[in-house]
Amino acid sequence: MKNIWIADGHCDSIGDYAAGKRNLKETAKFGHWDLTRAKQANLGLQFLAAYIESEYKPFQAAWRGLELLEAALRFIDHNSSEVFLVRTQEDAAQLGRTNKLGLLINIEGGEILGENIFMLDLIFRLGVRSIGLTWNERNAIGNGVGESEGSGGLSSFGFQVIERMNQLGMVIDVSHLNEAGFWDVLRHSERPVIASHSCAKALCGHRRNLTDHQLRALGDKKGLVGVNFCEDFLSDTGKATIDDVVRHICHIAEVAGVDAVGFGSDFDGIETTPEGLENVGTFPYLVEKLSQCGFNQNEIARICYGNYVRFLSDVLM
C-alpha cells in the first residue's frame, strides 16, 4: 500500500548477533529478522530487545544485559549507513522520512538494574530508551506473569524506577508484568506505557495476554499494544495464521481504539510463526489483510506506524 511503512515493537534478534550466529545484515538459513528482509518490507522502526535469559538471573543479569547492549550498539555502528539509534523526540520525528531504519533499544528484563537506580541512568546514557520491567519471574521491580496468582505488584524500588523512567523519558514496557504490577504502573506513570508484545485475552486465554479492562485502560492513557505473532498467544489451539493476528488487531481496536494498537512481532523470540507471517519480509501481507478486513487507509497508517510515532513523541524527550 502506497506510503505505508512498518513499526515493530519487539524482536529478539540481537541475541543471535551477540553469539556470532548471524550478522543480521544478510538473510541466513534460519532466523526471522535481518536488514535485507526488513528493507524489503519497508520497515522504518524496530524495537530491538536485549532479552536477559533466566540462566543469568539474578547474579549475572547486569553483566548479560550489558553484553547484549554492547552487541546492539556494535550492530548499529557496523551498519550506520542503513540504521540509526532512536533516542530523542527529534530522532522519532525522522522515522519514515529517511532511508535508514530506526532502532530503539529495549532491555527485556529489569534485572539489569539490580536494585540500583544509578544503573538506569547509566544505560540511558548508553542509548537504552525502553525497559521491559520483568520477564515472567519476580525481580526487584515487581512480579512477572509466571508468579503465583495473587502475588503483589511493584515493589518500592519498582515505583522509584517508574518515576525515574518518566523523568528521563524512557518507554515503560508492561509485557510480562503481572496484572497487579500492570495496574500499579498505570496508576503511577505520568507518561503513556506500552505492552510491546501482547495479545487479547478475550480471544486467547494465555497468561501473557491482556484483558479487555487492561486494553481499555491502556487506550484511555494513550498507551499502545504491539500484537504478538506467537501462535500460543493468538489461538488456544497453539496453531495460528495471519488471520488470527488480524483478529487480535481488530479486537484491540474495537476495545481500546485504533490508536492503541500496533505490531509487536516477537520475531526471533518465538519458536514458530503464524502461517503467512514467517519472517519480517512478510509484513506487507499483513498490511493487505488489514485493508481487506475494512480498515481505511488512515487507520492502517496509524496501526502500521502512526501510533508508534505519536507514542514516542509523548514519551521521549
Rank of each mutant, 00 (worst) to 15 (best):
M317S: 14
D220A: 15
L177G: 02
L35K: 04
I112R: 00
S80M: 13
R216K: 15
D236W: 07
A38G: 03
H206V: 09
I117S: 01
F311K: 03
E137K: 12
E288T: 15
V246E: 10
F84E: 10
Y308H: 07
S198H: 06
L73E: 10
R64K: 15
K100N: 10
D268T: 00
V227P: 07
F118L: 14
I123V: 08
V225D: 07
S148T: 12
A50I: 00
D259Q: 14
E53R: 13
R64C: 00
R97T: 12
G158C: 11
A72N: 07
S54E: 14
M119T: 02
D232T: 13
Q214I: 03
G158F: 08
N106L: 12
H188F: 14
S265L: 05
D121Y: 10
G158A: 12
G226P: 02
A260Y: 07
A18H: 09
G114R: 06
L312S: 04
L104I: 05
V86W: 04
R310E: 08
R191T: 12
R37T: 00
E190F: 03
S13D: 01
H251L: 02
N3A: 13
I300A: 06
L168H: 00
G109V: 04
M317R: 15
L43A: 10
I131V: 09
D220C: 09
G238C: 03
R74F: 03
R125K: 15
D184F: 04
D232V: 11
T273L: 06
G44N: 05
H197E: 04
S265W: 01
F263E: 07
A253T: 04
D16N: 06
A200M: 09
Q40I: 11
A92S: 00
E53C: 11
S13R: 01
I52D: 04
P192H: 01
N307F: 01
E271Q: 13
G44A: 11
K39I: 10
K39A: 09
F182K: 02
G102H: 09
N79V: 08
N99R: 12
F267S: 08
H188A: 15
I242K: 00
N42T: 07
S156K: 14
G127N: 05
Q46T: 03
E278N: 14
I14A: 00
N228C: 11
G31V: 01
H248S: 10
V86K: 00
K2D: 11
D232C: 11
S156C: 11
F263H: 08
V255K: 05
G65A: 05
D314N: 13
K21R: 10
E278Y: 14
G142I: 04
K39W: 04
S81C: 12
I172N: 00
I6V: 15
N3C: 01
A140S: 15
D121N: 11
A253S: 15
R207W: 06
V174W: 00
F75S: 02
I303G: 02
L24F: 07
L24N: 03
K100R: 14
K21A: 11
V83N: 10
E190S: 14
F124I: 04
F283P: 03
R129I: 03
C230N: 10
I270M: 05
D243S: 13
N116S: 14
Y17M: 04
T273S: 13
G44R: 04
E163K: 15
V161C: 07
L24D: 01
M1K: 11
A61V: 03
F30Q: 09
I6F: 08
S235G: 02
R187C: 12
G205L: 07
E190I: 06
C304I: 03
Q40H: 10
